[in-house]
Amino acid sequence: MAGTASGGSRRSRLAPYLLVAPGILWLLVFFVVPTLTLAQTSVTGTEGPWWEAYHRALSNYGTHFFRSLRYALGATLLSLAMGYPLAYFIAFRAGSLKNMLLGLVVLPFFTTFLVRTFAWKTILNDGGPAVWLLKQLHILGEGGRLLDTTIAVVGGLTYNFLPFMILPIYVSLEKIDRRLVEAAEDLYSTPMGAFRKVVLPLSLPGVFAGSLLTFIPATGDFINAQLLGSPNQQMIGTVIQNQFLEVRDYPLAASLSFVLMAVITVGVLAYARVLGTEELA
């Protein structure tokens, strides 16, 4: 029956479109439309030229942008430093403990982000155990504190986004063919050499994905800075939130959001150029 055959092939030609349609529709309604509305908000409703809000955003909040990028970068590097060895251990050495360790990495997600950050407030309290210990060790001076400092904010960001670093790296390490490592060692590579020449390059897509998943949300985060920082540690997310909800200066808030998006996009593109996205699985 020729009809059925041609019908089948038509269906198969349509299938990809049908598969992407829900996702595209979703993005259209919940991303493209709001973004356009936001763009419109950012250029209307102000006295003066259309770029007035952008001018204010850039001239008044430069420090907040740089601070956010600095903190997010710090948190990403710390997450990488802690996350890579852990992911490596889970993927290559954990044996029967593997599933339990992965479970532990994900476990914090069972409590909300906010409550966990609040818990840090208690831990880092001036009268709390962490400050007491550091004072005993003379790492922290008499009047020193942890809460409401840069260390607390970057620490909080690192803590909250660490699992997003660990999981992609774990996945990329997990699927490396072990025989490649054996082959390297058969060819007289030292374990370190095998790691550097085989494992590390093959895990880079995971590192790339992990650092994006950490860096991007950390840049826009406002909870950690608000709960664990002083007014001198406020990040751009706090400013945007305040401009939207407190001051209700919508054009400024919208233009700040766009500047943030632009900064992150440029950063990510530059990073992708260096590390290469074509290997991203």
Binding site: N125, D126, G127, R145, D148, S230, P231
Partner: peptide
């Protein structure tokens, strides 16, 4: 005062906890 570090935070009601906790 904020830039000099005099002011530790701008808060809502949570100043109360900080005050009670001795922060």
């Amino acid at each position: 005062a904020r830039e000099s570090g005099q002011i530790r935070k701008f808060t809502g009601n949570d100043y109360a906890e900080d005050l009670a906790a001795g922060n």
